[in-house]
Simulated assay, not measured.
Amino acid sequence: MGRKTKVALTVGAASVAAWAASKVVVKSEPRAEKKALQFSELAVVADVHIADDSSVHLLSSYTNVADLGVHGFAVDVQLTKDEEILLVPCTDLLYSIEIADYTLAEIKDEYDMDADQSHESTADCSSQIISLRELLEKFPQLLIIISISDSPDTYEGSLIPSKMWRLLKELDAAERVVVTSLYDEQIDRFNLYAQNSVALGAGSEEIKKAYVAYSSGFGHLYKPTADLFCLPEKFGVFPFASEGFVNFLKQLNIHVFYEVSDTSTMQKLAKLDIDGFITSTPDEVLTYCNQN
């Protein structure tokens, strides 16, 4: 037996010993149950981007979707200049102006001006701009998954976690929302105020960390900081639509929602022990769930 082989065997044995020792010493700690995520059936959460009819107030459009029987909404939010938490379904607006440079009233005026110049509609386009407060007040019975879009490196990004916490406390909404963000730091900042009293979604880094822990065999070392994973079927080289990965998360009392745009992949995903779907086509997904 050559020297290299002996070294490899020694390193391998040491790795196995370290893994075995860590299994004895470290115990997985499941997340505490959160009321917001308790559903008796597969949940369908609607991602409403834009109203079908710009002449209809956006809140009415949300009502129409709620009447389909969805369990909640997924929304992105940003902070305005006057520190209102704004929900902007129209992504074109996000790219045309800097939300943080305008008050809520100014944003509505800007939206109306853009519509007039394009001659696309004579409707009151400002009715398509609503605040998170309005959404929470309108739908107290539904789950709202709130994603913070402001970067933690910006001034508004530094304010929005505390503003969010105050709003949820004022409206007594802490037990019916999930707060998340692509920026893991924003979730951590919000939780400094919430202290795990609000359900938290996993940021992109948290999801990667969990998958690496699962696939490496050292999943027992993973300490979750989120209550909900909202997953695409696949992200880069990570095949998230995996029975093993879902079971790994479920053992930690982490709820799993998959993002779907149509029903073509739902049959495979529904076979996994998941908790729900996030979709921009809630009517199709609800029809599938009701028929199966």
Rank of each mutant, 00 (worst) to 15 (best):
E106I: 01
C90G: 09
T63V: 02
L94V: 08
I99T: 04
A74P: 00
C90P: 03
V75L: 04
D76N: 14
L104G: 03
L79N: 08
E84I: 12
E98Y: 11
D76I: 11
L68S: 07
G72E: 00
L68P: 04
V77G: 00
E106R: 01
L87A: 10
L104N: 06
D92R: 07
N64G: 06
E83D: 12
T80G: 04
K81I: 05
K81R: 15
L94H: 09
D92S: 13
L93G: 09
A66S: 09
T80K: 04
V75Y: 05
A105R: 15
N64F: 08
Y62L: 15
G72H: 09
E83S: 10
T103F: 05
Y102T: 06
T91G: 10
A66N: 11
L104D: 06
A100G: 12
E83M: 06
L86T: 03
E83V: 04
V70P: 00
I85M: 09
H71I: 10
L94Y: 04
C90Y: 06
T91M: 08
L87S: 08
D101H: 10
I99S: 04
L93D: 06
I85A: 02
D76L: 15
Y102I: 03
T63P: 07
L104F: 14
L87N: 15
P89E: 10
D67Q: 14
A100S: 11
D76W: 13
G69M: 15
T103R: 02
Y62V: 10
G69L: 10
N64E: 02
V70W: 03
Y102V: 02
E83F: 06
L93P: 06
Q78A: 14
H71F: 12
T63Q: 13
G69R: 14
V65Y: 04
L79F: 06
L79V: 12
N64T: 05
K81Q: 12
P89S: 09
L94K: 05
I85Q: 00
E106G: 00
S96A: 11
D101L: 04
E98P: 14
D76T: 07
Q78D: 14
L104Q: 09
Y102A: 06
C90T: 08
P89C: 07
T91V: 13
D101A: 09
H71W: 09
T63Y: 11
V65N: 04
T63F: 11
C90W: 03
L93V: 14
D76M: 13
V65F: 10
A105L: 12
T91N: 09
V75H: 00
I85T: 03
V75I: 09
L86Y: 08
L68R: 05
V65W: 08
H71N: 15
I99Q: 03
A100F: 12
V88C: 12
L86K: 04
I99W: 01
Y102M: 07
T63S: 14
L86P: 04
A74I: 06
E84K: 14
L68I: 05
I85H: 01
T103P: 05
L86N: 04
D101Q: 14
F73T: 00
V65K: 02
L79A: 07
D82L: 15
A105F: 11
A105K: 15
L104I: 14
D82V: 15
V65P: 01
